[in-house]
């Protein structure tokens, strides 16, 4: 049995309410931006649901958009239904001054290190995480290096100035 995208979206809407808008992108991935206060509830409902079985956390990563005021930092979740081949992408955005996102380690054990990695690189504070420490960088580090305010190369270097090709 295979569900059509409309059926899946209808099902997802019933779990989240009309506040969230689901859409299908051109690669047949259902995605939505979801408010932070609904995240844990939605994840939990999806995990426990036995009809669509979107209960496999594939990927979790952070993202930083400095221009989106009030929604600078984000977390992207990829969920999958192994049985029905559904790929779902959920995003939450939080302000950079108070980057608090509920942790989903209570639902997925796999989220533990993924959230630690996201904290390590973006400084997103996962509330309720059992052990939120840095994981890949050293413990003494104070910055969150994947944020866009840390460019990879020093843009003011004179010896590599290359005005013609837009470096």
């Amino acid at each position: 049995m295979k569900f059509s995208n409309e059926e899946i979206i209808q099902f997802l809407q019933s779990k989240t309410g009309s506040e969230v808008l689901f859409e299908v992108d051109r690669y047949n991935v259902i995605q939505a931006e979801i408010p932070v206060h609904q995240l844990y509830k939605t994840m939990n409902l999806l995990f426990k649901d036995l009809e669509f079985k979107i209960s496999n956390l594939i990927d979790l990563c952070g993202i930083h958009y400095p221009e989106n005021k009030g929604k600078e930092l984000g977390v992207v979740y990829h969920l999958q239904s192994l049985q029905y081949k559904i790929l779902l992408r959920l995003k939450v955005f939080v302000p950079i001054e108070k980057p608090d996102v509920p942790s989903i380690t209570g639902i997925y054990a796999a989220a533990n290190w993924m959230e630690r990695e996201t904290y390590d690189f973006y400084g997103i504070n996962f509330l309720g995480h059992p052990d939120l420490r840095r994981i890949l960088n050293m413990d003494e580090m104070v910055d969150f290096p994947m944020r866009k305010e840390f460019p990879l190369e020093d843009p003011f270097r004179e010896d590599k100035a290359d005005f013609h090709f837009g470096r």
Binding site: Y27, C61, R89, F165
Partner: peptide
């Protein structure tokens, strides 16, 4: 100079020890 289209892609392949995905 060639610019890529705007978009978001998740693609996974079966790596030797699991799902190797690129987002």
């Amino acid at each position: 100079e060639i610019e890529a289209p705007v978009g978001e892609v998740y693609k996974a392949v079966e790596g030797a020890n699991g799902e190797l995905g690129f987002y």
